[in-house]
Amino acid sequence: MAVATHSAGRPVPGLSYTQDGKLVSDEQICEWIMEFLAGEGASYGYRKLTVLLRSRHGLRINKKKVYRLCKRMDVLRPQRQLKIKYPKRLANNRVITDSNQLWETDIKYGWLHGEQRFFFLMSIIDVFDRVIIAYHIGLTCESRHLVQITQEALMKRQLFDKVNKPVIRSDNGPQFISH
């Protein structure tokens, strides 16, 4: 026994209108789409095909209808895959019981009205006691500045030669990996 499928929404009318109000069947539209794909629109997707149908044949047609027709004819191009440029990972949830176990870097910026430019404040904060250990204020904020204030923080807390150094965490991933 076959189960009848029920599709939601109104039924497909099977025709469209031109700007003049004339009726055009879906078969004719499919024929035009195939002509475009055989010629200049070989690499076009359904959105560009919609623009071509509107401009060349004066159709009042929606991109969703062109998508449905292309899908029915099995001429849709494969969808492009987005490439993740860096690994997205969640930070480890840590239990902090003492100072110098976890440090956090933070970047803030402001506007210098007189000079018409931005300034940056990068700081290293001890998560346990919420003290700013080292900071950098300047017109640029680069990785070399982070290295410099990390060395300053290690010297201030006398951890430069120790084995158990603090973990440094940052919420500023996009700033640190940008090109």
Rank of each mutant, 00 (worst) to 15 (best):
G9T: 11
F160P: 01
K65E: 02
R68Q: 05
E27F: 01
G39I: 01
M1I: 03
D98T: 04
Q81L: 05
V12C: 10
K108H: 14
M34C: 06
D129G: 04
P87M: 05
K63S: 14
R89S: 12
I61W: 06
H145S: 06
A42I: 08
A4K: 14
V163F: 11
D126W: 04
E35L: 05
T150Q: 11
R77N: 11
K83L: 06
V51D: 05
Y17Q: 10
L37A: 01
K88S: 00
S25C: 04
K64S: 09
G173E: 07
T140N: 12
Y44G: 00
R77Y: 00
Q175K: 01
L53H: 13
V127Y: 04
E31H: 12
Y86I: 03
Y44C: 08
Y17N: 11
L69W: 09
R80A: 13
L15H: 15
V147L: 12
D126Y: 03
V66L: 02
L69H: 04
Q28H: 03
W111K: 02
Q148V: 02
R68E: 02
D98C: 10
A153C: 12
L146V: 15
H179F: 14
G114Q: 11
H179P: 15
S43Q: 13
G110L: 06
Q81N: 08
G58Y: 15
G14V: 08
K165W: 10
S43G: 08
H145V: 14
F128E: 07
T50D: 01
Y86K: 06
H57E: 09
E115S: 12
M1R: 05
L76E: 07
S7K: 13
K48I: 11
D126E: 08
D26L: 03
R89K: 10
V3Q: 10
H6T: 15
K156G: 00
E40R: 10
F160H: 03
L15I: 09
V66Y: 04
V24R: 11
R89T: 14
F176K: 09
Y86M: 02
N62H: 14
F160S: 10
D26N: 14
P166W: 13
K88F: 08
L139Y: 13
P166F: 14
F119C: 14
R144P: 02
K108V: 08
P166S: 07
G39H: 03
I33M: 07
R80W: 06
L69F: 13
L59Q: 10
L69P: 00
L37R: 11
R47C: 10
S43R: 15
E115Y: 12
V127R: 09
L59R: 02
Q116T: 03
T50S: 09
W103I: 05
H145L: 10
T5N: 15
I125N: 00
C141R: 11
T150D: 00
M34Y: 02
K22I: 07
Q28V: 14
W103D: 02
V127K: 07
R68M: 03
G45K: 06
L121W: 09
L53W: 12
R130H: 13
A38T: 04
I124M: 05
L53N: 05
T105C: 11
K63E: 07
G41W: 02
R144E: 09
A134H: 05
I107R: 03
V3S: 00
D74V: 08
A153Y: 09
L15T: 05
W103T: 01
V24G: 06
Q81F: 04
